[in-house]
Design a protein around this nucleic acid. Structure first.
Lengths: 341, 341
DNA sequence: CTGAAAGCGCTTACAG
DNA sequence: CTGAAAGCGCTTACAG
């Protein structure tokens, strides 16, 4: 009953007394039409309430004007990682300019390497995909362009990372220089779904290398699994504070974790950095204004994201370029020493 | 050169010695095929590296398995509104279950009411769209289902809101009961792009009503435009603290704003609630663990989002139902009194 | 400046 | 259980 048929280009053509081609031209190649024909067509289209069908257009042109943002987990991830929100925002600002849309592609359920082929997008950004992730093999099964952010160098695709290893090295060295010899490392625990975040893996290696190079025993570092949630601050702090022997400092693989420790410490009446020094990673906006402000590693996030997307858009445009440079982009990290250490 | 032709269903059919229909059935109606035929087809498909073309499928079936999430602004919004992240996460968890994807549709550039027609989605969630927003008229120009979250009752579409007015009323009444007579209201300022957030508009009215009903003059409330960013805490706090006469309390239209004030006050050495009482709105997870914990209005966010999406999915399924109930869903809000007031 | 025709790659009654 | 055929609604050489 209410299932009114869609108005198609053909309807407009008939009504305006022109060919379908002419109607298509009215939208896509206006200069091919005389002013007067064009106006008549557009008027008729408007009267009939015609709207070009996006899917049909895509099938004919091959362009979706959409990029897929592929995440290693379900969408709940976004609740746990402020850095992801930041990156999503940056991707968004580039896409707004380019009139591209963003399709969110979470990795849920049974994830096959061929999965991306079933998705209507011109290209993909892989976020935090580890080589052992089911999507680690996706590169070989997708003929559409893709780039990685916080990726894994073992996946053969253009990668836009920060220097996790050396950043972590710097942070650890900083604490060692300050004389700390019992350092907790606040890191992510094994996830139920088995997903590994490559970034965190590399940061852990950086910490360990710094200890090794300082000629100190590995036991200098004590990994503690904590959640990346501000609201778990007390719990996370307790896990660290009750270690035996009690650590004098904590290195966190992410700023949220560090901020949550700051929170927990304050509630427990433990003074930072006097009783416990705290360092984070990534320099979230909040980290500059926490109490106390957080020592962390900073980077040019917008610059990196923009570069990644430019590369992706270039790849989408000249699909011929099979042999794009895959030289990884690894942004240097700078230690920002604030009052928490 | 590298532009290798795509393997199509037709190729598989030829190679397997069956009709295109059979190949299609192998994927979409397996029981229509003999076991053996089906296996042969699937094997051939695999050998050739065949993947069904999602766009062609959509054109034929009319289903995209995607919902569009329409925002009133550009995607940078996500950076400013943790509540949006929360809602996005909830939407994501429902979509994960339903195997639906999320397409993010920011309102940037020239936004026409017909804009949604150009987007390949089965339905839409409108987030925070005001009746005066260019998209306020979208309902009349889209034949696809849509629902609103934090919407405007003047737009004729199923709406899933919280009770902004009464929530605000409660918060204000609470402060008045505590004896406060000079109350700053931390709210959003006029945006450059002119976008109005309906939620905040209603909250302001709720505050004002409470003052009126208490027989107090409108000047009891002093609106102050502050940013919804934790990192602007000091600045926002200053704007409030330097008002003449100095307010004894501040009502914020959102929790982020309230948390940023808490932050600013702490840095300024001003004690909450002794020197300044602070109340927020929406009960973010962080609000329960701030220093001090924040008095705010709480709601069942997941429940509300799930309800909205169920409705949307129902509408998508039986497209016949022209006359769905548009009775607005308005979740009651409960005042959660914590230590900040 | 304009039109007839083929094509994008699927799905799905319909007939056997 | 299987196939020939029409259709989804556009775009775009090609020919005039």
């Amino acid at each position: 009953m209410s299932k009114k048929k869609r108005v198609t280009l053909r309807d407009v053509a008939r009504e305006a007394g022109v060919s379908p081609t002419a109607v298509s031209f009215a939208y896509n190649a206006p200069h091919q039409l005389s002013q007067i024909t064009r106006e008549r067509i557009l008027e008729t289209a408007d009267e009939l309430g015609y709207q070009p069908h996006p899917v049909a257009r895509t099938l004919a042109t091959g362009r979706t004007n959409t990029i897929g943002l592929v995440m290693p987990t379900g969408l709940d991830w976004i609740l746990h990682d402020p850095l992801f929100s930041l990156i999503l925002g940056e991707i968004g600002s580039v896409c707004d300019e380019e009139k591209m849309r963003i399709l969110i592609v979470p990795a849920v359920g049974e994830v096959s390497p061929g999965m991306l082929a079933t998705i209507a997008a011109d290209g993909f950004v892989l976020f935090s995909i580890h080589r052992d992730h089911p999507l680690g093999k996706v590169v070989e099964r997708t003929n559409r362009p893709l780039v990685m952010i916080n990726g894994d160098e073992n996946i053969r695709a253009p990668m836009f990372n920060v220097d996790d290893f050396n950043g972590a090295y710097l942070a650890c060295q900083h604490l060692l220089d300050k004389g700390h010899r019992r350092i907790a490392v606040g890191t992510i625990g094994p996830r139920e779904d088995g997903v590994i975040i490559p970034t965190y893996e590399r940061r852990m290696m950086g910490y360990e290398a710094a200890v090794r190079d300082a000629g100190l025993p590995p036991s200098t570092l004590r990994p503690v699994f904590i959640r990346g949630l501000l609201s778990k601050g007390t719990e996370s702090f307790e896990k660290i504070w009750t270690l035996e022997p009690r650590p004098t400092a904590v290195l966190c693989v992410s700023d949220v974790r560090a901020l949550s420790i700051l929170n927990g410490a304050r509630k427990a009446g433990v003074s930072v950095p006097t009783d416990l020094a705290v360092a984070g990673f990534d320099n979230l906006p909040d980290s500059a204004v926490s109490t106390p402000p957080l020592t962390t590693l900073k980077q040019d996030l917008p610059g990196r994201v923009h570069l990644a997307l430019r590369t992706l858009f270039d790849l989408i445009r000249d699909e011929g370029g099979d042999d794009y440079p895959v030289a990884p982009y690894i942004a240097p990290m700078e230690l920002e020493v604030r009052e928490s250490t």
